[in-house]
Design a protein around this nucleic acid. Structure first.
Lengths: 329, 329
DNA sequence: TTGTAAGCGTTATCAC
DNA sequence: GTGATAACGCTTACAA
């Protein structure tokens, strides 16, 4: 493993000084075109690349952004992640990946902070007060997405979950549902809390009480298992609001393959997110769209704004959900 | 945005020298326990974290590993990515994300190489000779996964695609299929090439010629669209080998929802990868398992080995695929 | 237009 | 045990 060529090596090869090499790689700097060409050639020959570490050190700004993500269990997470990293790269930022389960977020984020990142984007999971304080101490902006904590000094971008849940209940009520069930995720997650809140409010508004309240883990499998139980009894619900599409599709399977019920006539099902799979002919899932593109755009805008105006007041961007009416409700 | 606290700041606060602060954070170094405690306290108060950039610079080794990935279109990619990043973190490495479409891999990889990474793991996409040479020049080991290039100096970890494809054909032939179709992806991708090779060899061995050869883009949608056409004519195939599960499930939908065919009696379908979805009750897709866990384990082992023995001969690890017999073939 | 020299925040080396 | 001091590879005044 030979060593990386340094600016010194290139300088020697091109017969110039280290400073001139640096200038040759700085588009705005004054260098004779001829010199620049000579240096680039030498650099090419040596396989020289500016060392981003040394560069960041002296310029006191790296182009790293930490991206904290939990386990990617479903296509919604995958799509957000995909779009986000892709967009960051377009703005010349590199994503430093912090893959953490909810209970490790703090430890890992703290470790990652030894890299002087421009910002930390937290997708899912929860981040505790101490960690947020740490980010503040290091002058690192924190952007939460998929969660929202009013107590803390952090920007956030999040679907208006409560509104989405209310839209779902409304849709179910309008088609005559009386016994509506709720299928959520772990109740310490913001996405469960906020959707449950919207669900409860809407139910109350219509004078209904939930037929069931169950919580899975946002996977197909949990939707299927809970669905099997929930739909088998005589007191089964006539509609189910599921907190994400994966669980909704599990519920669909439970209904048709196990409970022998037809959807939506026996039981209506509505999901949340609108992953591509929801539109597949075999599912045609009615769902609340949690649009990826606007979310990622908002994250990037908030980020740019924060970097430009570090002292500006914190922002909370709520993304509007949208009803995607298909065949299951 | 206040500045990060430096070792100097901590030293001043604790009344010691910079060197001692450094020692306090190096577990193996000799420091009086009392001094260490005093320093840690001061550091805590100032929110000090060692600057990984400066550290990497002097130690001449970063704990960054570049992960190059294409667009994450399906759950298989998502799962490999998830498992890989998670495993890397367990070995105290941070993933630097390079999200590139096939035609950008070279440019972006080159840019990313300004970070002195320990290694580059390329998942999907193709990397050209010049880029590989660049990695060699920078002394950065390159590990290819999902692809395999015998011409280049790079380790690789890849499913034995040809074997998997042969197993698929064998399975179809055994159930009496005569008119077998191939549904692949872009023919410049290794996964298409190698699976097509295995498919062709097996077909020849059984004295069969392909009923159809079609290529999509590894998405459900492309499987559906191609399936609609392929299964509508009178000369339709009686079995289809699909290069991944997403397309196979699209094909399943085309068969049942559009062509009115029953699977597997009218047309058998076999996929590749064995994503969780393949096992869902609504699909029960027979498929060739391309196991995530062994793949990721192998990648990490190859990586560790390469870092420990930089000059060791290149390795090619082939992961054994496995037939997952379900209901579609 | 180019070179010299200082300095970014660490750690390694060598004194004491 | 601890403190100077010199690197690491780069950028940037300041000089020439």
């Amino acid at each position: 493993m030979q060593k990386r060529a340094t600016a010194e090596d290139v300088a020697r090869a091109a017969g110039v000084s280290r400073a001139t090499v640096s200038r040759a790689f700085t588009p705005s700097a004054y260098v004779a075109e001829k010199t620049r060409a000579k240096i680039k050639e030498a650099a090419d020959k040596l396989g020289y690349r500016r060392n981003a570490l040394a560069r960041a050190l002296i310029k006191n700004e790296s182009d790293l952004v930490a991206i904290v993500t939990g386990q990617i269990k479903n296509m919604y997470d995958a799509r957000v992640f995909d779009a986000l990293t892709s967009r960051l790269q377009e703005s010349q930022k590199w994503g430093l990946l912090v893959h953490a389960n909810d209970d490790e977020v703090d430890r890992l984020l703290n470790e990652a902070m030894s890299y002087p990142v421009q910002a930390v984007i937290v997708r899912s999971g929860s981040v505790d007060a101490k960690t947020i304080a740490q980010c503040g101490r290091l002058g690192v902006p924190l952007i939460l997405t998929g969660t929202e904590y009013s107590e803390f000094e952090a920007d956030s971008v999040c679907c208006d979950n409560a509104l989405g849940a209310r839209m779902a209940v409304e849709t179910l009520v309008q088609r005559g549902a009386k016994r509506i069930a709720y299928l959520g995720g772990a109740p310490n997650l913001y996405s469960d809390m906020s959707r449950f809140k919207g669900f409860s409010e809407a139910m109350e508004q219509y004078g209904l009480t939930p037929a069931f309240i169950a919580r899975g883990d946002f996977t197909f499998e949990s939707g299927l298992e809970i669905g099997k139980k929930m739909l088998s009894g005589p007191d089964r619900p006539d509609a189910v609001f599921c907190c994400n599409d994966a669980m909704a599709i599990g519920m669909l399977n439970a209904a048709s393959k196990f409970a022998g019920l037809s959807v939506p006539d026996d039981v209506a099902v509505i999901g949340f997110d609108d992953i591509p799979m929801a539109a597949w002919p075999c599912f045609e899932l009615t769902t609340i769209s949690n649009p990826v593109e606007p979310t990622v755009n908002a994250i990037c805008e908030v980020l740019e704004h924060r970097l430009e105006f570090p002292e500006s007041p914190r922002q909370t961007v709520r993304i509007k959900p949208k009803l995607m009416r298909r065949l299951t409700a």
